[in-house]
Simulated scan of single mutants.
Amino acid sequence: MSYTIAISPLSWVSVEKAAAWHEVVAASTEHDLPGEQPPSLKQVQAQLTTGGLDSRRLLWLATGPDGAVEGVAGLRLFDSPGREHLSELELYVHPDRRRRDVGSQLLAQAVFAARVEQRRSMVGVAADGGPGAAFCEAHEFRRVLTFIHLLLDVAVADTRAASAAPPGYALVTWTGTVPDDLAGAFAAAKNAMNDMPTGEMDYGEQHWDVERVRAMARVLADRGDILLTVAALHGNVMAGFTEIVIRAGEQRRALQYDTAVVPEHRGHGLGMWLKAAMVRRLRAEHPGITEIETDNAQDNVHMLAVNQRLGFREHRRSHEYQLDVQAGTR
C-alpha cells in the first residue's frame, strides 16, 4: 500500500495545531542541532499567530495516514518596497518521518504559492553539514551566504570598552519602542544596515522610517518579547545602536538583533563601546540571562572582530540558500 501524505494550508492556528507544529520543530532541532535549545511552545505559538513586519506568512501541515503531523512549512512573503520579489522558507520534517517525500511535497506547495505571489527568489537557512543543507542542494537551491553563529558568556565578557565614551558621543538606552524624541534619528541610523554583507543573496533593501521602527517594536511586544536598545548620540545624530531581544519566557539566552554604526561615524570604536554597554545593561537588568547568541556573515570581518574582542566564540555555522522560484525544483 502506498504511503499517502496530505498537505493542507493552516489558515487558523488552534492550540492543538500550534502544539503539533512545535513538536515537529522541537524534534527536528534536537536531532539536527544537538545541544541547541529548541524554541518553547509559547515562542512557536507567538511566531505563528503574530503578524511579521511588512510581511505575511503562509503555513502548511503535512499529515500522515495515521493523522500525525509529520512536517510543517511556512513561507514569509515580504511586502515592503524593494523586497516584493522575496520569499523566505521555513521547513521542518519530524526525524521519525523522513525519507517519505514529506519535505519535497511541502516544498512543492511553497514554490507553487511563491509563483502565484509572483516572487522571484526564495531563501532559507540550513545548518552546515546537516540534512537541511543536503535537502536544499538536492532541490536546486544555491548556497549564497555563510553565517558564523557565536555565543557570549555574559559573566566573562570583556566590557572594559564601556567604561569611557568616545569623545563627542553620549549613550542613550530604552526598552521597547523608541522614545518620540529619538525616533527620527533612530530610523535614520537603521538605514545603515543596508550596507551589511549579503553575499550573492537577492536580498533587496529595507527602508526605515519612524513608523516602521515603531511597527517592529510592536511586533516583538505582541509576541511577548523584550527589546533592549543601546545607542550612541553625536549631537542630534544617532551615530550607532545595538539591539538585544529576550524572547517570551526565555530564562537563559538573549538574541542579538541589529547592530550598526552610521558610515560617517565609523572608526571611533562605537561598535565595541555599544555592545560592551549592552552587556553591562543585561547584567544589571536581567541577571538571569547568561549568554547572548549572534550570527555574522562570514564576510563581515569587522563585526566578527568586534564580537571576538568582546568574548564571543564560534558556536556553529549555517548557510543561506536561494532558489530561483520561476526555474522551479527537481
Results as ranks from 00 to 15, higher is better:
residue 212 R to I: 10
residue 219 V to E: 05
residue 236 N to K: 12
residue 200 E to G: 03
residue 139 H to E: 09
residue 178 V to W: 14
residue 173 T to M: 12
residue 32 D to F: 14
residue 132 G to E: 05
residue 243 E to L: 13
residue 12 W to M: 04
residue 7 I to M: 00
residue 250 E to I: 14
residue 18 A to P: 04
residue 9 P to I: 03
residue 274 L to G: 02
residue 308 Q to F: 00
residue 128 D to N: 12
residue 197 P to Y: 08
residue 321 Y to T: 05
residue 18 A to L: 02
residue 70 E to A: 00
residue 158 D to P: 03
residue 136 C to R: 10
residue 33 L to H: 11
residue 121 S to Y: 12
residue 213 V to L: 00
residue 135 F to C: 11
residue 4 T to A: 11
residue 156 V to L: 03
residue 202 D to E: 08
residue 117 E to N: 04
residue 281 R to H: 08
residue 149 H to D: 13
residue 163 S to I: 09
residue 137 E to W: 02
residue 120 R to H: 12
residue 260 A to T: 08
residue 236 N to D: 09
residue 286 H to G: 04
residue 328 G to W: 10
residue 147 F to S: 14
residue 76 R to I: 09
residue 123 V to L: 13
residue 3 Y to P: 01
residue 44 V to C: 11
residue 116 V to W: 10
residue 311 G to M: 02
residue 305 A to L: 13
residue 147 F to W: 15
residue 214 R to F: 03
residue 327 A to F: 14
residue 64 G to T: 03
residue 184 G to E: 00
residue 137 E to T: 07
residue 89 L to F: 02
residue 157 A to R: 10
residue 230 V to Q: 01
residue 228 L to E: 12
residue 127 A to Q: 14
residue 233 L to N: 06
residue 106 L to V: 09
residue 285 E to Y: 02
residue 54 D to Y: 00
residue 171 L to D: 00
residue 259 T to Q: 04
residue 250 E to H: 14
residue 154 V to P: 00
residue 24 V to Q: 00
residue 288 G to F: 15
residue 79 D to S: 07
residue 261 V to D: 03
residue 305 A to V: 09
residue 67 G to H: 09
residue 174 W to C: 12
residue 82 G to A: 04
residue 141 F to S: 07
residue 291 E to C: 13
residue 312 F to K: 12
residue 59 L to P: 05
residue 118 Q to H: 05
residue 246 I to W: 00
residue 124 G to C: 15
residue 313 R to E: 15
residue 225 D to C: 12
residue 175 T to E: 15
residue 148 I to A: 15
residue 150 L to K: 13
residue 98 R to D: 01
residue 79 D to P: 00
residue 223 R to C: 04
residue 28 S to Y: 05
residue 228 L to V: 03
residue 54 D to K: 00
residue 234 H to F: 03
residue 12 W to Q: 14
residue 264 E to A: 04
residue 103 G to Y: 08
residue 150 L to F: 10
residue 198 T to W: 11
residue 206 Q to W: 11
residue 109 Q to V: 01
residue 20 A to D: 08
residue 34 P to F: 13
residue 296 N to H: 06
residue 54 D to S: 11
residue 111 V to S: 12
residue 51 G to P: 04
residue 185 A to C: 09
residue 106 L to F: 10
residue 15 V to N: 09
residue 63 T to C: 02
residue 291 E to P: 13
residue 318 S to Q: 01
residue 13 V to E: 02
residue 207 H to P: 06
residue 132 G to V: 01
residue 328 G to T: 07
residue 127 A to W: 13
residue 8 S to F: 05
residue 190 K to E: 07
residue 35 G to F: 13
residue 101 D to G: 04
residue 155 A to P: 14
residue 51 G to A: 15
residue 154 V to A: 07
residue 33 L to P: 08
residue 225 D to A: 13
residue 224 G to D: 05
residue 261 V to H: 00
residue 202 D to Y: 05
residue 202 D to I: 06
residue 255 L to K: 09
residue 114 A to Y: 06
residue 70 E to S: 09
residue 126 A to K: 00
residue 294 T to D: 11
residue 109 Q to E: 06
residue 17 K to P: 06
